[in-house]
Design a protein around this nucleic acid. Structure first.
Length: 212
DNA sequence: AACCGCCTCAACCGCAGAAGC
DNA sequence: AGCTTCTGCGGTTGAGGCGGT
């Protein structure tokens, strides 16, 4: 057990590793991470695989900057729930708890800085005050920018799933236990979808192992 | 051009709760 | 009921990028 942990890889994921993980999640679903970590041949822990999938490889993820409306939502929800990042993330389709947590840390710093710049005394523990100031700053910013409503966000997700479904239909790809969909960005030469489309056959477990 | 400090974000760690045996 | 394993969550860290001097 100890020896196994010692041989585990850490640090940034390579494209090849991402590819393997996507293949095996497609085959076995996004559960049983220890099992996936083992059979995939990845020298990663199940935990690490799950994290990579959830925070980076999941097809439903929305890339790009947090919009002013999302910011406001995060502020609102944080004032209600505190640091319940996963709960907050569920209200922001396509965003991960990690992303929101990172955003909040940055945001907190910015807000405190802005407040001190305006000669407002803010103690870091006074989150209600921070939220208030944050909302004020947001109001100002929203006046400058065109908004991006939650409806728009949901529309984006819908559009994305439509494209995904079309690709799945066309490629004759038999999805795994979970409804597998196309990764949101290009995998280049490692794309499992390319492999399947080119060979025009079902991607089975044996092939997946052979690839690993 | 080089250095420095700050910011962002991917990834790790530790812990708690759930599930399985 | 108690133990082990798995999963998910929140906190933290560190590498890399970027802007300022």
């Amino acid at each position: 057990m100890v020896l196994q942990e010692e041989s585990m890889r850490k640090g940034p994921w390579t494209e090849q590793e991402d590819f393997q993980l996507v293949c095996f999640v497609g085959l076995f679903g996004d559960r049983r991470w220890d099992f996936i970590a083992k059979v995939s041949g990845l020298k990663r822990t199940g935990k690490s695989c799950r994290l990579r999938w959830v925070n980076y490889l999941h097809p439903g993820l929305k890339r790009g900057k947090i919009t002013p409306h999302e910011e406001r939502l995060i502020l609102d929800l944080h004032s209600k729930w505190g640091n319940r990042w996963s709960r907050i993330a569920r209200k922001l389709p396509g965003r991960t708890d990690n992303e929101i947590k990172n955003f909040w840390r940055t945001h907190m710093r910015k807000v405190v800085k802005a407040a001190s710049h305006d000669h407002v005394v803010v103690s870091p523990s006074s989150s209600a005050q921070i939220i208030e100031i944050g909302e004020e700053l947001l109001d100002r910013r929203e006046e400058e920018e065109d908004g991006y409503s939650m409806d728009d966000i949901w529309r984006d997700i819908d559009d994305q799933s439509n494209v995904i479904n079309q690709v799945c239909d066309q490629s004759n790809f038999e999805c795994g236990p979970m409804s597998m969909s196309m990764p949101p960005w290009d995998y280049g030469e490692y794309s499992p979808w390319t492999v399947v489309e080119e060979e025009n056959k079902v991607f089975d477990y044996g092939e997946a192992v052979a690839l690993s």
